[in-house]
Amino acid sequence: MQLTLEFGGGLELLCQSSKIHNVDVKPNPGEDKLTMRDLLAWVKSNLIKERPEMFVKGDSVRPGVLVLINDCDWELCGSVDTELEEKDVVVFISTLHGG
């Protein structure tokens, strides 16, 4: 599944200072759907190069990290259970630093 991931608010520092990543993520073997939970696990092991604890906590993002799927707050579409679709744009923004 082709997705565009964007990291902002300082999170880009965890993935080699690159803000936009065009990625191809496959659902887990035996499943036909890709959820945000799966995507977070994939990002953690494939894109985050340092200090993953700044990005994830448990199976979700660290509190204080905002997530938007196609410019919509993920809290409105199911958070970690949201099912992703082809060409979705997922934005992660840290609110945790800089004033």
């Binding site: 608010g9 300082g10 520092l13 905002l66 938007l68 934005v91 800089g98």
Partner: peptide, 25 residues
Amino acid sequence: YEKEIVMYAYFKKLDYFSTECIYSP
């Protein structure tokens, strides 16, 4: 709320700086 400040900046595409101070927090 901080969440709303960041959402506002994001939707309005306001230009802000978010690198952490190089000296320890």
